[in-house]
Design a protein around this nucleic acid. Sequence first.
RNA 1: GCCCCCGUAGCUCAGGUGGAUAGAGCAGCAGUUUCCUAAACUGCGUGCCGGGUGUUCGAGUCACCCCGGGGGCACCA
Length: 575
Amino acid sequence: MSPGGAGDGRMPITERLTEGVRAALARAGLPEPEACLWEVPRQAEHGDYATNVALTLARAARRTPRQVAELIVKHFPSLLEVERLEVAGPGFLNVFLSPAWCTRALGEILAAGDAYGRGESERGRRVRLEFVSANPTGPLVIVSARAAAVGDSLARLLRAQGAQITTEFYVNDAGTQFEALARSLEARVLQELGQPASLPDNGYPGDYLVDLAREYLAEQRGASVPEREAADALLVRGGERERLEHFGRYAVSRILEQQRRVLRDYGVEFDVWTSEQRDVRDLHLPEKVLEELAARKLTYEHEGALWFRSSALGEEVGDDKDRVLRRSNGEVTYFAVDVAYHHYVKFRSADRVINLFGPDHHGYVPRMKAAMQALGHPPDAFEVLIVQLVTLLRDGQPVRMSKRRGEFVLMEELLEEVGRDAARFTFLTRRHDSPLEFDLAVATRQSAENPVYYVQYAHARIASIYKQAAEQGIGVPPLGEVDLSPLREGEEIAIIKRLVQYPEIVRGAARALEPHRVAYWLRELAGVFHPYYKNHRVILDDRRLMFARLALCAGVGRVVRNGLALLGVSAPESM
RNA sequence: GCCCCCGUAGCUCAGGUGGAUAGAGCAGCAGUUUCCUAAACUGCGUGCCGGGUGUUCGAGUCACCCCGGGGGCACCA
């Protein structure tokens, strides 16, 4: 333990405190704790951090919790971080941080810059994160906006903790939905040509396919003569397979192009876009995995189909029934394709696979987990997060969404109406597995009072202070040279204590895969900064104090910027 | 019928791996600006944390049961 130092300024403060506790326990001859958990007490009288370690250790130490706590206090090493320790209640150990150390910590935050908040807790892990993966059968709708916000933020969080992460959009461009899409487009094209044609029963009735049919025909008119003739011939005489492939590929590529553009406008870019057809089926991976499962004696034939013995894999991972891998008509199921893809592709480049699914897929999770374990992957290596539905309201009235009926609110309409930052922030102030109500009218009307603007405004205000200083010709010294000791106001120390919490918030959010913790915490940070701004002037005659306060503002601005970046939300210089 | 998620203030939601006296935003009411952006600040909250039983020093948090809401239970994806 370096004397009084705080390492590189990135180590969460609680780790230093834990080191102190462990050292004290060792000196007192008490047993080592398995873990030492810290919380920020609700009440200021309980200190800046508190641990219940003495309560958990009392039995093993054969002493009362309070006695253990007293011994920790007695033997606690002298740390610059800690002003004093108190034993409270049934045996809590309350820690009060030293104001002098806080001002030093601010200096380290400023020195760390955009690295402040990064950590190593996921270092060395290769993570494959799949999200959105909407079917390429229509435009993206609201729930994809939520999944995109959550998935993208998770990627940023895990990356900030040192994980090597690959984000992925998986395209289901095969199977029955693909076929329905192809038939739908073909019907629309024929209708545009004035020929009688009707959508198939499971077709897609949305207007976007009418538009697509027109674009298709427009392209045909602009194409070379041989190309046009080939297309005409296909329509008239082509075999069904050929026609479906032709219209299906056209529809998928155009729809994907549009989905990709909307996501990019949202600030979400994927590392890889994989195709079910090209990257799995064409490589015959499903057949291969069926053989592998068969070799492990986990499949059987029944009524002409091939089944996976998913119900026989033990209580913990077992599915409630067996699942079909290959239908009696010879086609492999979506499930078999997915198992093959995960096993041969995802797990080849990652040791941790995380998928974000909609609630309609949660029944699908046990069979996937069973399959992954059957193929030798550790139980925790495959995780599924269920992103719950978004109930969209407009003035309190539910907006029904159904691709089938062709009525829905598009993701791009949402972005147009409430904006990218507000949309992302709103999605990230809810737990991903909690259903969410989003009232378009309210979000638009109240946009100025949306929490996202409250946080962004803190950043803009700080930028404005610097702008004002520059206009007054105040030469601010490099922040590393500013004497921070004039920061003595209780509010100033309280703000720094908040900033000190940040690395831990990020680490916890990454561990729990819960980006909303960052959003809430940023709201709280802004909530201590705005009153401070109101009560104290930054630009004033006392230059020592002014420079110190400017540095404090720079620290707040830095952390707001870093935090918003983890959410994919912008930090504006002015509003 | 079985499985998963949810149930916390009027509304929308937080409550980290069980901790001390349960929080925020919005809505509502009353105020604040010769001063770096009023997208701000200050004040005003009596909640069977859906109900019950249990686990323990301690339960909004864990286990079980019940009630209510949503979703899932295909040789669909």
